[in-house]
Each structure stands twice: as C-alpha cells, then as structure tokens.
Amino acid sequence: MRNEELIRIFMENASKVAAKPIRVEGSNKLNDILDEILANETSVYCPAKTELEKSVIIDVERRVEALENATSSVEEVVAGIAETGSIVVSSANGRALQTSLLPTYHVALLSADNIFASLDEFFKIMGNDLPTNVTFITGPSRTADIELTLTIGVHGPEKVSILVI
C-alpha cells in the first residue's frame, strides 16, 4: 500500500474512535501546531528523550518535570495501526507508560513511517521478545457503565491528539 493511502486510512480510523489526528507537513511546522492545540493548557509534560521530542518547544512557565502534576503530555509513540486507528506505546528504553494515562490531554507524535497497515504486520515486526508493557491506545478513555451512555474521559485522558509527522 502506498504510504499516503496508509496515512489516510489511519487518520480516518483514528477519527472514528474519537481521537484527533492532525497531519504535520514537515517537522518545522510541529511547534506551530503544538502551540495552537496546547494554547489553553497550563502544565505540559514532555519526556524529551527521542529526537522528535527534543525538537518540541514548550514555554518554561508551563513545562512541568513531574508527570503527576501535568494536565497534558506530549510524547512520541512507537507505532500507529491503520486497521484500528490505534497508537502504540511501549515501556522499551525506560519510557513511562503513564505519560499517555495520567494527564487529561495526551498529544501523540507519530512518525508516518511507523504506521502499519494491520495488527498482524505490527506483531511480525515486534517479534517474540516484547518489552514489559506494550499498550494499544484507541481513542480517549471511555465508559458506558451507566445505562450504556458513552462518557469520554474516565480515568485516562479525555482528549487524544495524534500528530502524524
């Protein structure tokens, strides 16, 4: 499948599960888009471990070092799955899984090269030597436990944006 087609399917399926995929054309536009979507956020956490994360600029006054105190987080995720519109986070390289869990707003940075067409394709690449924790995230945290009424944002984030770079 052509890369552009894969990106299109991924973004379409991610929208269906209430995530907000945004296409970033060129990494120099990344900070403009982040400024825009994080405009109302007061405390932002970014691990700054990968090259992509290191290129993220967040003002000193709202950047927090402790994840527990952040209302939003920006981090690179390891993969996107076009079939389900999911993003994948992993504990490999000492990454904190709670980055995509504790804040109410999770901004995922996804390199377009890491989008896989199907679940099978992703697992083939992963092999059998899995990191301690691999988590697929498909949209925001949700529940339907009260009268099957869909409520977004239970314990995890109520908003998930995916910047496809």
Binding site: N13, L130, T132, N133, V134, T138, S141
Partner: peptide, 14 residues
C-alpha cells in the same frame, strides 16, 4: 467496538 480504548500486553516484571 473495533478495539477497546486500551489493550495492554504485560510481559513480566518491569
């Protein structure tokens, strides 16, 4: 659902 919001694969102690 096509997939639940979260699916975690936990392999051993971290």
């Amino acid at each position: 659902q096509v997939l639940t919001s979260y699916l975690s694969i936990i392999s051993g102690q971290r």
